[in-house]
Design a protein around this nucleic acid. Sequence first.
RNA 1: GGUCGGGUGGCCGAGAGGCGAGGCAAGGGACUGCAAAUCCCUCUACACGGGUUCAAAUCCCGUCCCGACCUCCA
Length: 465
Amino acid sequence: MPSLNLYDTATREVGVFTPLVKGEVSIYVCGATVQSSPHIGHIRSAINFDILRRWLTKNGYTVTLIRNVTDIEDKVLQKALQEKTHWWELAMKYEREFTAAFSAVNVIPPTYEPRATGHITQMIQLMQILIENGSAYAPGNGDVYIEVRRLKHYLTLSGQRIDDLQPAADTDETYKKDPRDFALWKAAKPGEPSWPTPWGAGRPGWHLECSAMAFEYLGESFDIHGGGLDLIFPHHENEKAQSEAAGYGFAQRWLHNAWVTQSGEKMSKSLGNSLLVEVILERVRGIELRWYLGSAHYRSMLEYSEAALDESAVAFRRIESFLKRATQITGSQIEGTISSEFEAAMNDDLAVPAALATISENLRRGNQSITDGDIPMITKNAGEIRGALQILGCDPFDSHFAGGSSSELRDVMDGVISLALQERASARDRKDFLTSDAIRDGLLALGITIEDTAQGPRWSIMEKS
RNA sequence: GGUCGGGUGGCCGAGAGGCGAGGCAAGGGACUGCAAAUCCCUCUACACGGGUUCAAAUCCCGUCCCGACCUCCA
């Protein structure tokens, strides 16, 4: 097959992706800081990387995907104080919410999901290496810092120069050699959780965990490091600095997803314009939310609006409806296949918008084939659509989305509705349209849509909107 | 101040020197008792000013506007 091309934030170019180990791909994605409920931006990030993972898997790679949970961090402690709860209780609560949100949009769980607090030992080992080789220092107050001026390749991801950085306003220069030095480890303050280290009791700085956990599960070097655009600096820059200073090759390629915006502005916890997943899921189904969030290119901003979400959901239902009809007509389960157009689009830096154009084409041809009664063409187009939806994680036949009414209940409903449709048919035969329309309207009031197709009337339950 | 994105038709949204992505909406048509669904047709855009080129939405220079990051963030 033609090879997969991917963008790399470090070079800002799209290039051929070649994994370190043939047939295997190792990915580290920065997951959630579990300090508040997930919004659709978080979910978008997970969906983008899930699509990458599914595409790699489809192409025969064995994928190891590590997505961390940051369960100890300043904000977690702050929020716990506000909510008058234990920090670990708070972290667990939100971790569960994230897990539920990921599941609602059919994100395959990572191969492993390490928590920062479970990897203190690995962090201490990493600090040991960095202090021994002179990249880091412990000034004696319990903190441990990286000395950024001693790093050879600092800031190569974001393309900045140390001297151009605005030093943090709140930086404490009592112990730092340079205001831009960043903390690997933070000394314990009274009342805060802490773990013992050779340099004093404390807790991890934000960046150290990812370096330590990436090394633990993926080794010195791995293929892809992902996360949101806002993590490039400082988080990824600092992770890279630490790991490289320890002598590791670290990430070979960096992928960053863009945001979900509102009125052009990034959705974020601090701006208070977050759209919580649970709220959106009252408006559309999980599969529709996924379709919407996955439809933009991962490096493009996705400007949220209710109208766009609704439009997207309607478009998805059209596709879904075609697949269901195709299954009924062909009388067999549709097998997902990959068209060469879809493959080309996905191989071009996961060009989902171009891939969606191929689905539109399949849909148009498929519907035409239903009108023509051309079973082989129905099967071909439905197969290519289903194959594409499987990669996008939006396969309506995926058992993950099945839920709801049991097939037994559905059979009963089918029987009952068929009775009503028989009444309607005989009314229509008598040209008693008053009665036939009353039956259709009655069913509609119950949320059941009737469509008269060439193959006879067809009923479906209206999706919530 | 430094760094990085972006501005495309009524709307959304790709593309990145030539061969008009796609979707939605709108209008017209086919089908239909009506409706729904479906199909066909129509609508030709790249912030502004220069430049390079046989050819620019795409490359270069300048300007305007929007957003992001600069140690909390997906």
